[in-house]
């Protein structure tokens, strides 16, 4: 039988494969390590240059704010894993915040009110998922549009007969405030329960993603939709589920922020537009989908939160913080984005 002659010099092929392997092997782990090192350096520098940075009080406030960002970025991570983007998160946060404050001012039992808002958040997420699946490739502007109209509608709804727009005052139940207030107590311990909730949710989520077939399906779809569909993994189900979770976690974040501040304010979610995406990217989850994970996002969240706290400690006002933050994200992303481009991996 006549066969094509050997293709290439085997030695050069093997050498190039070995170097490729070196590059690819650790790209996920590498960004995680870079993140942890960066976090340690930031904490070190901040502790030395800002008085009181390394205090229990400051650690508590960093962890508390990190919990909010961590929960908001949970959905964003899942959505990014399948290759999508959810820009409705800040608006769902803002809407949930004022709607819950509004419900607390009615005769509806607080627990039922919380449940209603959570369902509403999940529904908005599902809507985002279905529509962005139908209109492929338009997730960015679509989620932004839905978020916009939601937050607008929530403001109209909550300000009937009121002269204030965007702020809602009502009595927040003490038990609910305790969950996410800076002086909240967890079973007598001096930190708010939301930190513990975040830790438990994170642990469950990471375990579930690794050991449940539905968790693995996220990576299958994020990597190669066609190959996943041949293995009868439903891209539609996966896609819609991640957006639903994203809507749910965003609304939970919005409600917890009500407990934190004590009054409903529609703009409370605004910073999360940038920070949820930044936490995902800084953590090392590719926005192209199929790599990274929530563990990485946790590192990203902590990096961002420590950095914010550092900038505040340096006495920068919000505008200056924003400038530094924006500029710092560039080298950080450049550092993380050094994983080989997808076209070199196939």
């Amino acid at each position: 039988m006549e066969w094509p002659i050997p293709l290439e010099n085997p030695e050069t092929t093997m050498a190039s494969q070995a170097s490729l392997r070196k590059n690819l092997l650790s790209s996920d782990r590498k960004s995680l390590i870079i993140g942890i090192v960066l976090l340690a350096v930031l904490i070190g520098v901040a502790s030395m240059s800002v008085d009181g940075f390394a205090s229990t009080n400051n650690a508590r406030s960093i962890l508390l704010l990190a919990s909010f960002l961590g929960l908001a970025a949970l959905g964003q991570t899942l959505v990014a894993t399948v290759g999508g983007l959810d820009l409705s998160i800040p608006f769902v946060i803002g809407a949930s915040n004022i709607l819950l404050a509004y419900l607390f001012g009615t005769s509806i039992p607080p627990a039922l009110g919380i449940f209603i808002i959570a369902v509403l958040g999940a529904a908005i997420g599902a809507l985002n998922g279905v529509l962005s699946y139908r209109l492929q490739g338009q997730a960015l502007i679509l989620t932004l549009g839905i978020g916009f109209s939601l937050v607008g509608a929530a403001q109209i709804f909550t300000t009937f007969g009121s002269q204030y727009s965007g702020t809602v005052f009502s009595q927040v139940p003490a038990w609910f405030s305790n969950i996410s207030a800076i002086n909240g107590k967890t079973l007598g311990m001096p930190f708010p329960p939301v930190v513990l909730i975040w830790a438990v949710v994170s642990a469950i989520l990471i375990f579930w993603i690794h050991h449940n077939r539905a968790g693995r399906a996220l990576y299958a779809v994020g990597n190669n939709r066609t190959a996943a569909s041949v293995l009868s993994i439903s891209e539609f189900k996966v896609w819609v589920s991640t957006y639903t979770v994203s809507g749910l976690t965003a609304s939970i974040t919005g409600m917890l922020l009500l407990g934190f501040s004590g009054g409903g304010f529609v703009g409370v979610g605004d910073p999360y537009l940038f920070t949820t995406v930044a936490a995902v990217v800084v953590g090392g989850t590719s926005l192209l989908g199929g790599s990274g994970g929530y563990g990485a996002t946790i590192v990203g969240v902590l990096v961002l939160q420590v950095l914010t706290s550092f900038l505040v400690g340096l006495g920068l006002n919000y505008a200056a913080q924003q400038t530094v933050f924006g500029l710092l994200i560039l080298p950080m992303v450049a550092l993380y984005a050094r994983a080989p481009h997808i076209r070199y991996q196939i």
Binding site: R213, R216, Y219, A220, G222, N223, N224, T226, A227, A228, V230, L231, S232, I233, S286, G290, S291, I342, Q345, I346
Partner: peptide, 21 residues
């Protein structure tokens, strides 16, 4: 490339994805 492998995933995972069911 198009309908076989999952480029970012491990060898074991690429094998296992069909069998998780």
């Amino acid at each position: 490339k198009k309908e076989g492998i999952f480029a970012n995933l491990s060898i074991l995972e690429n094998f296992g994805l069909a069998l998780y069911g």
